[in-house]
Design a protein around this nucleic acid. Structure first.
Lengths: 118, 118
DNA sequence: TCCATCGTTCAAGTATTATCGAAATGATTG
DNA sequence: CAATCATTTCGATAATACTTGAACGATGGA
């Protein structure tokens, strides 16, 4: 059941254009970017972009907020965090493993008993 | 071009059964598991499993080695590592960000001594 | 009010992906 | 070499996803 959730999110990121959108938003930070700006940056037709934004939004990776005539989309950092945590869980029983990932997992474990800091 | 590679890998993981296979292998460690064992664990028809293993293999996330009559599949840790690194690159220009992810990226930075803003 | 702008939704065509039975391959053993 | 076992490949079918033009609703400015 949890695997299904992770899979739908990974599938959402598993499309070149959507991944590009997502990375753009990750880099943009909490402020986010308006749909128009995203479309301009990536050269996507409005309908196509809207489709992908809706997709990313539906699986919880981004959220949109209306601001005057624009809609700003921003990364949902907490959900992305969960996804990465899921991917690095139970990594090879402590054997030789992912350098970065193992580090991330250790950090994650350490963090889980305390509130978020960044 | 690099985004495309990451996207194909994420897409490969973005399928419930394949993600389950992958996690099983991550937990199994470098030794890996034979196709038969994987199929048994996850209740997949041989042909279906083979299709998914080939898919994961083609995008570089796992590799198979023949051992007697069996084929053992194991996680390609380095490639997975790269993928996670890609996802956490250029994270929100130092603003409030991914807790776990940020930690991962910091480790990555330390390991590679490459400039990552996070 | 009228018009332009921003973005979404709809509809329909096209393309890609998943599934699994059956047959083929490849390795091992008697 | 024949039999057996593990896995893959083939082929057909079903399902899902992507793209885009056109129409629509909402907002803000003249």
């Amino acid at each position: 059941m949890e695997t299904k959730r992770a899979a739908t999110r990974l599938a959402a990121l598993g499309h070149e254009k959507r991944l590009a959108v997502f990375r753009l938003l990750v880099q943009a930070g909490p402020e986010g970017l308006s749909a128009g700006v995203i479309g301009e940056q990536l050269g996507l037709a409005p309908a196509t972009l809207s489709f992908h934004l809706a997709h990313l939004s539906r699986v919880g990776l981004i959220t949109g907020r209306q601001e005057s005539r624009f809609i700003f989309y921003a990364t949902n950092y907490a959900e992305m965090d969960d996804l990465l945590g899921f991917l690095t869980q139970n990594c090879c029983n402590g054997g030789s493993c992912l350098p970065k990932t193992l580090a991330a997992n250790t950090q994650a474990k350490r963090r889980r008993s305390s509130p978020k800091t960044c």
